[in-house]
Nucleic acid binder design. Sequence first.
DNA 1: TATTCATTTCGATAACAATCGAATTAGATT
DNA 2: AATCTAATTCGATTGTTATCGAAATGAATA
Lengths: 187, 187
Amino acid sequence: MSENPELVTFFKALADANRLKIVGLLAQQPYSVEELAALLDLKPSTVSHHLSRLAEVGLVSARAEGYYNVYRLDRSALEATTRGILSSEQMASVVEDVDLDAYDRRVVEDYSRPDGSLKTIPAQRKKLEAVLRYVVKAFEPGTRYSEKQVNEVLSRFHEDTASLRRELVGSKLMSREGGGGDYWRNE
Amino acid sequence: MSENPELVTFFKALADANRLKIVGLLAQQPYSVEELAALLDLKPSTVSHHLSRLAEVGLVSARAEGYYNVYRLDRSALEATTRGILSSEQMASVVEDVDLDAYDRRVVEDYSRPDGSLKTIPAQRKKLEAVLRYVVKAFEPGTRYSEKQVNEVLSRFHEDTASLRRELVGSKLMSREGGGGDYWRNE
DNA sequence: TATTCATTTCGATAACAATCGAATTAGATT
DNA sequence: AATCTAATTCGATTGTTATCGAAATGAATA
């Protein structure tokens, strides 16, 4: 429970002055639709609409009583959801359908020519790092490359292979052994 | 702090799927506007708008960093407000400008003729009680009335003074002493 | 100082939501 | 069963808000 879309609905339910007032009134005592309409100076149909939105997320519930439909606040639902907001699971579920590579792809797209080579090497850190994360994929994990082989791969992206190589190592995406030894891709 | 209108603004700030995603993303790490725009597939101007609404309620704050404006989540603001929602002060402040007599007035209005007399005595409890709360105001607190005097006052409202008298006593708005003694208004 | 780049602001548009009145439904009371 | 009464649903209207593109701003680098 407490799914992603439900969370938005929950906040939307409380994101209206009149609905907040209804919650506040029901916190004191149960009320019928007619009474709430009088207290808030709204038409019953409008109040009914508000109540159904609150009921949708379980904040209120109705009980037939004589002619009236008496609504009451469900405190436990309010507590449960407000407590859950801070939880890391909630946060994670909200973000779960966000594509975390979208930024890198956009940057690479901006800096790439149709043939896959780079127009320029980005000057700004954030964009340089995005490009580097893309470039490093050209190396097999677990394989060791000589400096000559590294340059050969990097030349597909940009003629300034020395800069690319230095930045890849500096950003910890690749490592080199000792002074003039082999290179490998990290992770 | 945590005033009534601010509470609505707070909920409105979180009552949008993309703004919730922004909060979720910033819960993991700070991001620039440009990055968020790429991740959410929105234009920077739109993201900027969302961030300003979140900043308005103190949920996020910005820090200039190189070319970028890096936003971060203010966890304490989130915690403080979500904790406060359940408090009775919050609830009370939301309702403070609601006129709690509005329902009674509307019912009395419905049942009254221009001269102040009642068209009928309401059959339904809730409305009868509203009318009784209105009628009882015709009696002075702290004064004792004979049954004859009570009937005289009540006859201004309705010819069935016996019913009105009985209901007033039954609803504890008035009391009578012993068997056939005097009446007085309670509270 | 001029330029570059991200961000913000502004104006317009389109999607959404609150509100109402009218018509319908559901449920008690007679 | 027939009649009341409150609640709900429906359609229309109005006000609000998310989104975008274009223009302005402002900070950082060259």
